[in-house]
Design a protein around this nucleic acid. Structure first.
Length: 284
DNA sequence: ACCCAGGCGGGCG
DNA sequence: CGCCCGCATGGG
């Protein structure tokens, strides 16, 4: 059974959305204009066709329309966002990735991915996540044929040995991932944070060993949809100092205050556009 | 050989 | 608080 969804949409840049370091970049594949990613025991395929978003969910138990609207935040009006975060430098970042959507992802998947991301490269994160899905993720079948792997539940990671995890070349992060999986399986329900405010979510996440300011903001933003979150990594720090602080070295807390003052409740969008502009236009 | 990567925890002053 | 360091691993 295949669920289909189609909606006219002008401001949707699928390639930029995929290619922006968000969780779909790691759990999904983008080939020939089609983004395919695992969700709810299915593989969802998304592509653009003559100004329409088309989506198919191969498998069962999934409403493709609801999934795509929610996942790509189609209820956000991007043009209004652009108006609200606009300034001369931001306009260049927007132009570079116009139509890029923020995505809303599963809290555990987002948590695991961004624990792996710390002090790592996008390339290696991708490889590691692929290996983890291949090794631990439940296979997804369509008509008896395997069409992919889900991202593993926290319980599977919790029950794996640290040695097994290390085979995914996540190095010193294996301990963090394993402990987080234990915590989220046996002691704390990540899904109980859904609907809470940004600061409560961030505080609860930072109680987890291996999750600090930046990773907590990534999870709050892409796992819980909190647009007040502003993850500051090396790239964001560098680009803010260069474009907004007259080249002056600035502390993380200083930059948080700056972003809060400048972009307020939409700083998550500002961050995403700055990030992709930074790594693609200025990175190597 | 050398440098860097979507940072974090711990130790120090 | 702020600063500084080590950290596993892979790629340029």
């Amino acid at each position: 059974m295949i669920e289909k969804f189609s909606a006219r949409f002008s401001s949707f840049n699928l390639m930029a959305t995929y290619d922006s370091g968000q969780p779909l970049n790691f759990i999904g594949k983008y080939e020939k204009g089609i983004l395919a990613y695992p969700c709810c025991n299915s593989i969802v395929k998304v592509f653009l066709h003559k100004g329409f978003i088309e989506a198919e969910a191969e498998g069962m138990k999934l409403n493709a329309a609801l999934e795509v609207k929610r996942r790509f935040r189609l209820y956000d009006n991007l043009n209004k966002v652009y108006e609200n975060i606009s300034d001369p430098f931001m306009d260049k970042a927007i132009e570079y990735s116009r139509g890029m959507r923020l995505t809303l992802n599963d809290p555990w998947e987002t948590t695991a991915i961004f624990i792996i991301s710390q002090f790592n490269s996008i390339h290696n994160i991708k490889k590691s996540v692929e290996m983890i899905m291949e090794k631990f993720g439940r296979p997804i079948y369509l008509y008896g044929k395997k069409i992919g792997n889900a991202f593993p539940e926290s319980r599977v990671i919790a029950e794996a040995s640290a040695e097994e995890l290390k085979k995914a070349s996540i190095g010193f992060r294996a301990k963090y991932l394993h402990e987080a999986a234990n915590y989220c399986t046996y002691s704390f329900d990540l899904y109980s944070l859904q609907g809470k405010d940004y600061y409560s979510i961030k505080e609860a996440l930072m109680d987890i060993d291996g999750i600090g300011d930046k990773v907590a903001d990534c999870i709050a933003l892409m796992g819980y949809g909190k647009l007040e979150a502003f993850p500051i990594d090396r790239w964001i720090k560098r680009i803010l100092e260069k474009a907004y602080m007259h080249g002056n070295p600035s502390s993380i807390s200083e930059l948080h205050r700056f972003a809060e003052r400048k972009w307020g409740s939409l700083q998550g969008y500002a961050q995403q556009y700055l990030f992709r502009y930074g790594i693609k236009a200025f990175g190597d």
